[in-house]
Design a protein around this nucleic acid. Structure first.
Length: 561
DNA sequence: GAGGGCCCGCTATTCTGTTC
DNA sequence: GAACAGAATAGCGGGCCCTC
């Protein structure tokens, strides 16, 4: 593929690529970076094609179409609110791509006119291109090098640029990506394509030029395009019941137990269709040993100056508010967040969560296992630093988007689970006991935890709970989903009252306790099919205070004995 | 290691068919 | 109808997955 485009001519991008259309994978790309003879100089710019190729790989294999905007925003972007005028003391905000920031997230920042990394005088190369914007808001997306205004004067006409854009994409394709083939929408209609402001008034003109901070060579290329809003609004019918936004979350912790703490957290905010809107990352001082440093790499020294969780709870809450929490094995991340918020005497504004493992199972993805790395590999998403919260969240966000698209196309009901804030919990390991049968050591030497193995219930099963009546000793009770009282505390109280805790639901189960009876878990599904009575946690807590003694007493004993 | 959900294998129970 | 054997079904719980 070779492209030539720009508002004023002269400028150009040549991006040869080898793309496997059947698999939707970009196999190879190179960028012609020099503007002095048309000779590839890969060696000199070896880091640039590699980085660009990696960004394109993520974006392309993630189910999205590679746009010129993605090319342009690969590393740096400049935003001007109006076209620079000669002599005007304008300055332009410069956005630089951050470490671990994907192309889509980076592209979103200058669009949203967020805080730039730098402000630069607007008198450099690019003013001529700026004038071409005709006084409209424009986005400049410079790469290394710039374009001389003189060259820019010999611009090809709009129709030429339109043809160049056509040439950037296959006319027809057998590629099956979640978003459909790159050249056409799923309904067969040609996808909207960017054009210059002169051709497509009403669209936001985006053009690029400039000189990158590391540039050592002469003028190279600039990129011109428009925000392809029509393409962004995919024609795929979208289920009305789907959430309006998602927060892809990953936390690193000091361990897995109830008393373990968060040491870092990352959030990628996605819109209704899974497109990245923003992202955020922070370290957290756990006020204790950092736990498995060999996993997350965060030492006591690194975390010493990090904020405490209560100090970041508000910002994190803003990132989560009104969105469905998405995580890989979401129960883990949510339980850690819920406990941290409970310790901080606050509540996480999360009402629902979505586990990407459950979603993968719903989609029947052909994965060897359900680890994050397998899901990432399935979509061709490259992990840079496994167990770095920001990179894990990015990887998951990239992998979640095509999964969401597949689910939408299939009209799948998303496996959403209700999130219950924690109001009562036990913190800290159980007091040390002797290493008797039933107690097992944790991975940290010196602490002991009680086994969850409980003795058999001494009372026979009196049958199912009847609505409006009381619980009877021996009834088999199963729990499903979040409870505001720590699950283990709840189960302990049930056992003390003479109830039997069942780990699964069968026809003999007396009662299912869940705060989310509509959730698609196996227990609620089985309870529905068996006609098992279902009550919520609050009702159960009330019933628990008046459990009727078993009619015949304990098994193997005489009544009253 | 903890913990919730899920899967699968073992065991118990029920059903069916056969024989007396 | 009783007794038995074999097949079918149901229930339970151990172990696995996945996160740090």
């Amino acid at each position: 593929m070779r492209q030539r485009f720009g508002p004023l001519g002269g400028s150009r991008v040549r991006a040869p690529m080898v793309i496997d259309l059947a698999d939707g994978r970009m196999l190879w790309t190179d960028v012609h970076l020099t503007g002095d003879g048309g000779v590839h100089d890969v060696e000199r710019h070896v880091d640039r094609p590699g980085r660009l190729g990696r960004a394109l790989w993520w974006y392309f294999t993630g189910g999205s179409r590679v746009t010129l905007w993605d090319l342009a925003c690969s590393d740096e972007a400049v935003v001007v609110r109006r076209a620079p005028e000669p002599g005007a003391p304008d300055e332009v905000p410069v956005f630089r791509r951050r470490e671990y920031e994907d192309a889509a997230a980076f592209a979103a920042r200058p669009r949203a006119l967020g805080a730039p990394e730098e402000r630069r005088p607007a008198g450099g190369p690019g003013k001529a291109d700026g004038r071409a914007a005709g006084g409209r808001r424009a986005l400049l997306a410079p790469h290394e090098g710039g374009v001389a205004p003189g060259k820019a004067a010999s611009s090809p006409g709009p129709s030429t640029r339109a043809r160049a854009w056509h040439g950037s994409r296959p006319a027809t394709s057998s590629r099956r990506s979640p978003g459909g083939p790159p050249g056409r929408a799923r309904d067969g209609a040609p996808r909207a394509r960017p054009a210059t402001a002169a051709v497509r008034p009403g669209l936001t003109p985006c053009y690029g030029t400039g000189r990158g901070p590391r540039c050592q060579c002469g003028p190279v290329f600039s990129v011109t395009m428009l925000v392809d809003r029509a393409a962004a609004d995919s024609p795929t019918p979208w289920p009305a019941a789907y959430p309006e936004g998602y927060a892809v979350v990953d936390v690193e912790t000091t361990g897995l137990a109830r008393d373990d703490r968060i040491v870092s957290a990352a959030v990628y905010q996605l819109d209704a269709r899974g497109r990245v809107e923003d992202h955020w990352y922070t370290l957290v001082n756990p006020q204790r040993d950092p736990g498995p440093v060999w996993i997350h790499g965060l030492t006591t020294e690194v975390l010493a100056d990090a904020p405490l969780f209560p100090e970041i709870a508000g910002e994190l809450a803003k990132r989560l508010d009104g969105r469905v929490l998405v995580a890989h094995n979401a129960a883990f991340d949510w339980s850690m967040l819920a406990r941290e918020y409970a310790r901080a005497r606050a509540t996480a504004p999360v009402r629902q969560r979505l586990c990407t493992i459950a979603l993968s199972k719903e989609l029947r993805l052909p994965l060897p296992n359900h680890k994050l790395e397998s899901l990432a590999a399935h979509y061709g998403v490259v992990q840079q630093r496994a167990h770095h919260a920001l990179d894990d969240a990015r990887v998951l966000a990239e992998a979640f988007r095509p999964s969401l698209q597949l689910a939408a196309e299939a009209g799948l009901r998303l496996p959403l689970l209700a999130c219950q804030p924690l109001t009562e919990w036990s913190d800290g390991p159980t007091a040390p006991r002797s290493a008797a049968v039933g107690y097992q050591p944790s991975y940290r030497s010196g602490t002991w935890r009680p086994s969850r193995k409980r003795p058999a219930c001494p009372y026979p099963n009196p049958g199912r709970y009847k609505s409006g009546e009381q619980l009877i000793q021996g009834m088999r009770v199963a729990f499903s989903g979040d409870t505001s009282v720590d699950r283990e505390l709840l189960e302990d109280r049930a056992v003390e009252a003479g109830l039997h805790i069942a780990t699964s639901v069968s026809r003999l189960t007396s009662l299912l306790v869940t705060n989310d009876p509509g959730s698609p878990t196996s227990k609620t599904t089985k309870a529905a099919s068996f006609g098992t009575p279902v009550i919520d946690e609050a009702a159960f807590m009330q019933l628990l205070s008046h459990v009727v003694p078993a009619p015949g007493g304990a098994k193997g004993t005489t009544a009253g004995g």
